[in-house]
């Protein structure tokens, strides 16, 4: 595993406790700092606005509410992010089709690699 994630601040938005907690543990193990996790839209928006973030992992469906507004804020702030989703790609609105998307269930190493790449891009930019 590369060092891409070391000291990076990663926002985690996921409403399912076990997934959120697994993500947080894996990120901490990889040397990152976790912002959140949060499972609802309001908290997610607040964190996206107020915290310093290098990259974000967003579950698309937060207990029925879509996390798109958080993605919009992050895009504005040029914070790279990815979606976790139980949906197929076609159900994403066209605006968000360019955002990396990892279908559930996912393998943790793959997710960490993807988040690492996002942070790397951010560093280059």
């Amino acid at each position: 595993m590369s060092d891409d994630l070391k000291t990076k601040r990663i926002l985690v938005i996921e409403d399912e406790y076990f997934i959120a907690s697994d993500l947080a543990r894996a990120l901490v193990t990889a040397g990152a700092e976790v912002v959140g996790p949060a499972g609802d839209l309001a908290t997610g928006l607040r964190l996206a606005d107020s915290e310093e973030i290098d990259a974000a992992i967003l579950d698309v469906n937060l207990d029925g509410a879509m996390s798109y507004p958080i993605a919009d804020r992050l895009s504005q702030a040029q914070v790279p992010h990815l979606f976790l989703t139980g949906y197929d790609g076609w159900s994403l609105p066209a605006t968000y089709r360019n955002i990396p998307c990892l279908p559930k269930p996912f393998a943790m190493p793959r997710l960490l690699a993807l988040v690492g790449r996002l942070c790397g891009q951010q560093a280059q930019a």
Binding site: D15, A24, G36, P37, A38, G39, D40, D63
Partner: peptide, 9 residues
């Protein structure tokens, strides 16, 4: 939904 208590940031 609430924020996770752990790991605490």
């Amino acid at each position: 939904n609430r924020q996770l208590k752990e790991p605490v940031d």
